[in-house]
Structure formats: C-alpha cells, structure tokens
Amino acid sequence: MSPEELVERIKSLLGEFVKDVKIWKNDYIEVEVDKENIEEVAKRMKEFGFDHVKDLTVVDYMKEGFFRIIYNLGSYDNFELSYYIVGIAYNIPRDKPVTKTLYYTYTSADFQEREAYEAFGIIFEGHPDLRPVLLSPPVAELKPLRKDFVVKEDPEIITKKK
C-alpha cells in the first residue's frame, strides 16, 4: 500500500474530521483533526487497524501559543499498515491546556498521558490515574519540557547550602 492510498483510505474513514493531512518522508502520515472529535477519530482509527499508540508526542509551539498533541498510532496485527505510523494531531491553547483522555480507547496511552501531564502540565480529563510518572512532584511543577523552561548550556554553579 502506498502512502497516498493510505491517506485516501484514512480520509474516507474519518470524513469531515480531517482538517489536514501531510506525508512526511513516505512513511509518516500526520492527520490533523479538531480537539472535539478526537475520541471519535481514535475509535475509528482503532477499528481501522491501528491498534496501539506507539508514542504520544507533545510539541510546544510557544510563539504560536499552542501545544500540538500527536498520538502516533501503529499497527501490530495488520502487516500492510504496520509499515506506517499515523500521527493524529490536534492543537490546544497553551494557556488552557485541557483535553480529553484516550485512555479508554487506547490503554497503551496510559503512562504516556501521565508523562505529558508531568512534563507539559496538560490535563487529560477522564484519565483515571493522572499523577506524575517519572518526575518527583517538586520537579514536575516546573513543567520542564515547555519551551519557556530554559535549560542553560552552562553548568549551574553549585553553592553549599546552609
């Protein structure tokens, strides 16, 4: 199956939900949808054959003022589909980072949503167990993967605390 064919099939599957489709380097297809439709889109994609979330990527576009949440879906069962990764992407505003969870459609997104929560402060409504997974609470408060948290290239100067 060529990427163009797959795009056509996804377009016919998702219909009016698709806002934009891009093919990156022949094997990565990015499908942009709206935040409101994400649950329905996920359900349809799962029925189509993309059975697990390979990874959940959040990209912070600070200047434009939004987070882009990308669920990169992959397939285990379907040999043809497994060549491709389909990224279901949608934007949420930076100042109100609240969205819906896909936990009930994709169990494999469980820990990844927690990771996005701790690193970007994005709240996935409906997630049953939204706690930091990798960071300790004081560090998670920094929301370290946001672009406005700047890591200096110079080492921090350590002083003896009294």
């Binding site: 960071l135 560090v139 920094l142 370290p144 948290f149 890591v151 200096k152 110079d154 080492p155 350590i158």
Partner: peptide, 13 residues
C-alpha cells in the same frame, strides 16, 4: 560532576 548531563535539571551530584 554531572558528566554528559551536567546541565540537566533533574540531577544532583
């Protein structure tokens, strides 16, 4: 002294 992660925000020496 931190090695390759010298400027990480999540490490201590």
């Amino acid at each position: 002294d931190g090695g390759i992660f010298y400027n990480s925000y999540n490490i201590v020496r």
